[in-house]
Every structure is written in structure tokens, then in C-alpha cells.
């Protein structure tokens, strides 16, 4: 397969980037998208050029490291997958593919297609945890009865891998889906109730501080999320937030 790649190149966080065009030949349909970029980089290195920097780690759809806006959609045109799970058979010979970093003020570009998503980490640090006594008398989580529906909903929320596709897809660059998943996974469980009030208040405050946009319920985040995180989580976070605000 012969393709034309239009890729965002940016030297560092302080430089101004631009789209650069790279022709690539010999792309196999069974290659993953990241493997195709590996091939491109091999060629660039052999020519003495700077390889294209992009995030990747597990390459099996569970770490959330790979990102990329591919032809105007985070993680490419397919649903419920990450970029590493996208295969080149999804494209046709002669196609032009536009590849950009996830764009948000809160996700500054480090280099080329790699962005700094530590704003998500700071939101997690603000309350995305539970405090458990680990001094020897820890209660086995399996010994705590939890309704099946709540356990399932919590597990589904916990499936969020924090890749940032929700922010990338949102026209407002809002992080509500990510934050709400992290709030929901604990809000639904007895272990999370203890710190529920301060958790939601602190996490939303941190989310706002990071400079993400406001949610306008377009639903793009839910559609583009590789893990199918539902908008129900945002509604739940809104309820949790209002209830926590009234409690003070």
C-alpha cells in the first residue's frame, strides 16, 4: 500500500509546529498504525532525519499511552479501539492520512505527536483514590456485599485508561468524561463513600484549574472513547458535585 502521511512536526514545547508531508510505500494491511509509523521512522532515521515522536507503550489497547488524531478522529475511524489496535487494512492504497497530536491547552505538545497528559494525573491526585488501612487488618474487598448493578457500573467506569481521547474529541476540550469516570468508579462503591464529598469537589476544582473546557453534552467523548465510558458517568458526577456542594 502506498500512502501519503501529513504529520504534525514540532521541535519542542516552545517551537511553532507545522504539518509535514511524508510519502510511504510498502505498507501492509496487517500492520498496526503504530507499526506503520515505526516503518516511517526507520526510513527517516536511515535518511539522517529526526524520527516522528509519538507515545506508545503496551500496544495492546490497555495502557492508554498511544493517542493521535487520525483523519480528524482520536484513535482513528474505528470505534472502541486505541491507535495501537487500528490496522492499516482500514485504509486504501493512495490514501492521504492526516496525523495530529491530541490538542488541548491542558495537553501541551512535548514534541511532534507526543503531548503532556500529566494534567490527568493531577486530577487523579486530587481525589481519585480511597484511603484504606493497610496496617494488618485490611478488610477483604470481596467480603463487602455490593449490588451487581453498582459493581458493574463501577467496573465499567474503572475501565477508563486515561488516554485523553475524550478531551481530543470534544470541541471544547473538556475533561468531564475522564474525571467523571474516576469519580464514578468510587462513588458507586461503599469503600468510596467515605471520601466522596471532598473527592468530587477537589477533582472538579483541579480539572477546572488545568484549563480544560466546559462540557456542552455533545456526546463526542462517549462515541470516541476506546473503552466505551458512558455519559451516565458525567450525570453521576454532576449529581455527586451538587450534593457535595450542598453539604459544604
Amino acid at each position: 500500500m502506498k500512502l501519503t502521511l501529513k504529520i504534525w512536526r514540532q521541535k519542542d514545547a516552545n517551537s511553532k509546529g507545522s504539518m509535514q508531508t511524508y510519502p510511504i510505500d510498502g505498507v501492509d494491511g496487517d500492520m498496526s498504525f503504530l507499526e506503520m509509523l515505526d516503518v516511517l521512522n526507520d526510513g527517516l532515521i536511515n535518511q539522517g532525519e529526526d524520527p516522528v515522536v509519538f507515545d506508545h507503550d503496551c500496544r495492546e489497547g490497555i495502557c492508554g499511552a498511544c493517542s493521535l488524531m487520525i483523519n480528524g478522529e482520536p484513535h482513528g475511524p474505528d470505534r472502541l479501539i486505541t491507535t495501537c489496535q487500528l490496522h492499516m487494512r482500514r485504509f486504501n492504497d493512495g490514501d492521504t492520512i492526516v496525523i495530529e497530536p491530541f490538542r488541548a491547552k491542558a495537553f501541551p505538545v512535548i514534541k511532534d505527536l507526543m503531548v503532556d497528559r500529566s494534567s490527568f494525573e493531577r486530577i487523579q491526585h486530587a481525589g481519585g483514590y480511597i484511603s484504606v488501612n493497610t496496617s494488618g487488618n485490611t478488610i477483604d474487598a470481596n467480603a463487602i456485599p455490593i449490588e451487581k448493578e453498582d459493581a458493574d457500573a463501577s467496573f465499567n467506569a474503572a475501565a477508563c485508561i486515561g488516554c485523553g481521547a475524550c478531551v481530543a474529541a470534544c470541541k471544547n476540550a473538556s475533561a468531564m468524561l475522564f474525571t467523571s469516570a474516576k469519580v464514578s468508579q468510587f462513588a458507586l462503591l461503599p469503600q468510596g463513600k467515605v471520601e466522596a464529598t471532598r473527592r468530587v469537589l477537589n477533582m472538579v476544582e483541579q480539572m477546572d484549574k488545568e484549563g480544560f473546557g466546559n462540557c456542552t453534552n455533545t456526546g463526542a467523548c462517549e462515541v470516541e472513547c476506546p473503552k466505551g465510558i458512558s455519559l451516565e458517568n458525567i450525570a453521576r458526577m454532576n449529581r455527586e458535585y451538587l450534593s457535595a456542594s450542598l453539604k459544604g
Binding site: K6, W8, G17, M19, M69, N71, G72, E73, P77, V98, E100, R103, A104, K105, A106, A169, K171, N172, A173, S174, G211, F212, G213, T218, G219, A220, V223, E224
Partner: peptide, 16 residues
């Protein structure tokens, strides 16, 4: 202001 650099290509119509 939350997205200072716009996308070269953004297919909002596919998801909203």
C-alpha cells in the same frame, strides 16, 4: 481558550 491550536482536520460530524 481550552484549545488554542486548532486541528488541521476535525470530523465532529462523525461523533456528534
Amino acid at each position: 481558550k481550552a484549545r488554542t491550536v486548532r486541528y488541521a482536520q476535525f470530523k465532529g460530524g462523525t461523533n456528534s
